[in-house]
Amino acid sequence: MSYKGNANGDLLNNLMDVVQVKLAEVEPKSNIKKRVFHILVEILQNIYHHYGHITIDDFSDKESVTFVLAKTQGDYYIITGNYILNEEMPALKAKIDLINSLSSEKLKQVYVETLGNGVISEKGGAGLGLIEIARKSGGKLFYEFRLYNNHLSFFSLMVKIPAALPAAAKAK
């Protein structure tokens, strides 16, 4: 399934509802269903928190979020695209590169440390979203930035959620 449109809270909520119905139809395993939904919520809320500080002028009527959920051979793929401010790009890129460089044990450690120490930002982000997405999907975060104009870049993210549970989640 795919979606292209604005990133306001109501629409993202509706999108979550639709995905939930769809997942109930196609996925028999409740733990996989939950995991896909959980990762999806984190990704969409990440976008929502980022979207919050981009002014409407930058967008005009431009459709701002692209979303695809696909299932092939049992594996799920979530692909999203949204605009971010150019000045945020280096920090976001550095964060994803760091997460991708960590082993599953190290990811868990960083997650627990951030959970215990970090504060919640004004936007409502906990700094845990991308770490959690990497941890629960058990793989790398694939991404691309494309310069759109002087202010904005288009950020795409792809996450693969394997049909078999990743070892990271099995290890205690």
Partner: peptide, 13 residues
């Protein structure tokens, strides 16, 4: 809980 997002996990802490 059935599931919770990461900002809720902060609140649980």
């Amino acid at each position: 809980l059935e599931y919770f997002n990461t900002s809720s996990s902060k609140c649980l802490v």
